[in-house]
């Protein structure tokens, strides 16, 4: 049968920053082709196709419901592949090769991780499951 794609509404203007992204305006409606867990979603809007940040979208049906998975306070072990320096108060800075616990996998690609007593958001694209090669 036909493939039905989820429709999302754009909640804020977004200007593309690299080649395969698309620029969208608030209230544009887009169909989602692929949801990557790094927070970039591939979507189509009229005749445009490209990647946009999941955080700029809300589902057309049920915009008040969170689609995020529940947090797992026991934590899941991951290793950092790439360094990231926090730019906002709720982020955490980590060096490559550090083992951390992921406690909340958010669809926007900024997972909540714990390192000792510190907790903060970190880009999921810089993480790999512990024990696997980056």
């Amino acid at each position: 049968g036909p493939i039905i794609l989820d429709t999302y509404r754009v909640i804020a203007d977004y200007s593309k920053t690299s080649k395969h992204e698309i620029t969208l305006r608030t209230d544009d409606l887009v169909e989602i082709v692929e949801k990557n867990q790094n927070g970039w979603w591939f979507c189509q809007c009229e005749n445009k196709r490209g990647w946009i940040p999941a955080s700029y979208l809300e589902p057309l049906d049920g915009p008040e419901e969170s689609e995020d998975a529940d947090p797992n306070y026991e934590g899941e072990l991951y290793t950092t592949c790439t360094a990231y320096k926090a730019e906002q108060d709720d982020e955490i800075s980590l060096e490559p090769g550090q083992t951390i616990e992921v406690i909340h996998k958010l669809l926007d690609g900024w997972w909540v991780v714990r390192k000792g007593d510190e907790t903060g958001h970190f880009p999921s694209m810089f993480l790999q499951k512990a024990g696997k090669e980056c």
């Binding site: 909640i11 804020a12 920053t17 690299s18 395969h20 992204e21 082709v33 692929e34 990557n36 790094n38 927070g39 970039w40 591939f42 990647w51 940040p53 999941a54 955080s55 700029y56 809300e58 990231y84 906002q88 926007d108 690609g109 900024w110 958001h121 880009p123 694209m125 810089f126």
Partner: peptide, 22 residues
């Protein structure tokens, strides 16, 4: 075929969205 996603982390949610989450 779908091109690879951008190699940089996506921007954080716009301010409007962050307020909603609090």
């Amino acid at each position: 075929s779908i091109k690879q996603p951008p190699q940089n982390p996506p921007p954080r949610p716009p301010a409007e969205m962050r307020r909603k989450r609090v």
